[in-house]
Each structure stands twice: as structure tokens, then as C-alpha cells.
Amino acid sequence: MFRKHHFIKISLTFLITTLFYLHSFAQNWDIPDDKKTKNANFKFTNQTISEGEAIYTKNCMSCHGNLGKDNSLKTLNPIPPDLASVKTQERTDGELFFIITTGRMLMPSFKVILSEEERWKLTSYIRSLNKKYVQIVSETNTSKSNLIKIKMDFDSLTNKLKVDVKANETSGVVSLKDAEVMLFVLRYFGKLQIDKTVRTNNEGIATFNFPKDLPGDKTGNVDLVVKVSDEIYGEVETQSKFKAGIPTDKPSLTEKRAIWNVLKKAPIWIIITYTSIVLIVGAVLLYIIYSLMKLRKLGNN
């Protein structure tokens, strides 16, 4: 009875371990063909490389280490590769861009954190040590993004935000169909995505459900950012203020007297305790000096 139990236990453990290994080996970057061939629509220059390096230091270095130094964080599973390695450099620009954008397992997605332009600049930095690399610049017309006009409309009754995306073509105003739209609200340390990413309908309209409990400023205003990505028109971002949050008036942590505050805002009890101790000790010392002066005078007589 006991033995049988034991056998099942061991077999199960073995099976699970094997499956886990197979799982982590089998799962690979699954990159769609059309994304593989995607390219940046600007030339990689020293300027883009140095901007990319700043982005890399802030977002990537903690795991991937310094480029070409093979000092990535080996304690992670899977081990993050050194991005200057041959295996990574063999990938196309589109593949790198896709990996940065979507992320996988431990690698986070940078779709929301970095703009498309920043992700391409990052790619240019990752290429910077590769001498054999020749860039293919996309021939997409960048000027097309200037034509996009975004209109935001917040309905406070239903708490819905309507985004209307149009393009001012020479032939007249057209609605952008099936364009990807993301909604963010600005917070202290970055952008917080609201609702899911949605695609515009045939009229070029995307609708978002806005939460009812989002804290705003004193009057309830929040800064909303809408990001539109379209295959033809490229990426456009616009920002505007709406009264969509709950009015919040929390005093800042440095407003009142506190132990962590500046000297002028020290807690009263500390000021009283410290000053009175110093004064008392000072007074005693002065008394001693006075006594010594008296002693000297006594000697004169």
C-alpha cells in the first residue's frame, strides 16, 4: 500500500518535471511573419543610439546587463541573453521590435511603457556593437501621421470616453477604420492604461469604459492620453484634461510637521525636548563657570 503510493508520487513528480522542461524549451518567440519584416521609418544615427542607450540603461540593463559584457542576471530562468550576442543579432529589426513590444514570460511588454519611436531607438542601440549590421529603412510615409485628428469626448453620465479618429486627406476627411487605440491616465510615475486596447469601428470611433473611482486632482480633473496606431498613418498621441476622476484633496506628506520633514516643519515635541535639554545643560554649565569665577575672586581677597 505504502509502496504503491510512493511509486505514484515519484512518477508524478517525474512527469511534472519533464513537462516543465519541455514546456520551457518548446516555448519560443512566436513572431508573425508580417511583424518580422517591419522596419524603422528613420535612419539609425549616433543620436538615436545615445538616446537608445539611455532607454536601455533605465529599462533593460537590470536584467540584460551591459551590452557585450555577458553580465546578464544569470539567476533568472530563462537566462536573459546578452543582446550583443550572435543569436540576438541574427534576428531582424522587426523581430527585436516585436520582442520589446510584446515581452514573454519574465520579460515585460514595453508596448505601454515606451513609444514606438523609443522602441526603435532602443533597437538602434542594441545594433550599435554589430559591425556587420546594415539597416533597412521602412519606406512608410511618416508625414501621414500629421494628418490624423483625434477628438475625445467624455460622457459623465455613462462614464464612457468616446475617441473619434479622423484623417484630413486632400480628398476630404476620412474615418480611420480598425486603428488600434489605447487610453491612459497620467499618474505620478507614468501612464496607467485604462480599459483594454480597442480598435476603431467603421466610423473611426473607439469607446472606453472609464472607472468610477479614479482619483483626480482637487477638482476631479485627470490628464488623459490617447495613443492611436495605424498601419498606414503610423502612431499619434494626444493629451487632454477631463473632469473624469473623483475630486481628491490629500495633504502632501511634507505639508504638516513630521519627523521626515524639513527643519522648519519639525514636530513641536522634538523642538521642545531638544531645546529644553540644551538649555538646561547649558544653564548648569554656565552656573559652573560662574562658580569658578567666584572661586577666583575668593582667592584674591
Binding site: 545643560v281 548648569v284 559652573i288 562658580s291 569658578l292 567666584k294 572661586l295 575668593l298 582667592g299 584674591n300
Partner: peptide, 28 residues
């Protein structure tokens, strides 16, 4: 030596002051 002449009054000042300081130095 602060004009020390060993008078009782001077002795008393030294004794008192030393005592006060000896008490004060403990908390400090």
C-alpha cells in the same frame, strides 16, 4: 589655579561643582 588658597569656601565650591557635574555627566 584660579587664585587657590585652600580656604573652606573654595573647597566648598569645588566640592559642589564637581558633584553637580558628576550628576550631570551620567545622563549626558
Amino acid at each position: 589655579s584660579l587664585n587657590w588658597n585652600g580656604s573652606l569656601e573654595q573647597e566648598k565650591i569645588i566640592k559642589n561643582s564637581t558633584r553637580i557635574l558628576a550628576i550631570l555627566i551620567i545622563p549626558v
